[in-house]
Amino acid sequence: MEPDETDETAVTRELAEETGLSVTVGRLVGHVERAAPNGVYSIFDYECQVTSGLLRAGDDASDVAWVDGATLDTLPTTDGLVEALSQWNCLPRT
């Protein structure tokens, strides 16, 4: 997040930068903490509705895609991601 940025502003900006999508930010669905080199990252996940844009990979990713639950099961994911999404009832439909 940038200084003085709200969660909503940061989510909107980051999604535009990293995916090419404009969104309306909805409710907070969950929060996790992950170890970082100099402490801990606090990660807050929000529901979002795409309002415009074309999905594209940002400069820190080699690929991006919309996937269903069955496809997600075949992809490598960050440890704990699928479990967190499941707890928050945010997994894609199969």
Results as ranks from 00 to 15, higher is better:
Asp73Phe: 11
Ile43Lys: 08
Leu81Phe: 10
Glu83Trp: 02
Cys48Gly: 03
Ala16Leu: 09
Ala35Pro: 15
Gly39Ile: 13
Ser86Cys: 05
Glu47Phe: 08
Thr78Gly: 09
Gly58Leu: 05
Gln49Met: 12
Pro37Phe: 13
Leu54Asp: 14
Asp60Ile: 13
Val32Ile: 07
Ser86Gly: 07
Pro76Trp: 11
Ser52Glu: 09
Gly30Thr: 04
Asn38Val: 15
Gly20Thr: 10
Ser22Pro: 01
Ala61Trp: 12
Pro37Arg: 09
Val32Phe: 07
Glu33Leu: 09
Trp66Pro: 03
Tyr46Ile: 11
Thr19Met: 14
Ala35Val: 14
Ser86Pro: 01
Gln49Lys: 11
Pro76Arg: 02
Ser22Gly: 03
Gly80Ile: 11
His31Glu: 14
Arg34His: 13
Val32Cys: 06
Asn89Met: 00
Thr51Asn: 08
Val11Trp: 01
Val67Phe: 01
Leu75His: 05
Pro37Cys: 10
Thr12Cys: 01
Leu15Phe: 04
Thr74Asn: 15
Gly69Asp: 02
Thr12Arg: 10
Gln49Asp: 08
Gly20Asp: 02
Arg27Phe: 09
Leu72Gln: 01
Pro37Asp: 07
Ala57Phe: 11
Ala70Gln: 10
Glu47Ala: 14
Gln87Pro: 00
Leu28Val: 12
Thr51Ala: 05
Ser62Leu: 13
Asn89Gly: 04
Ser62Met: 10
Gly58Phe: 06
Val25Asp: 01
Ile43Gly: 02
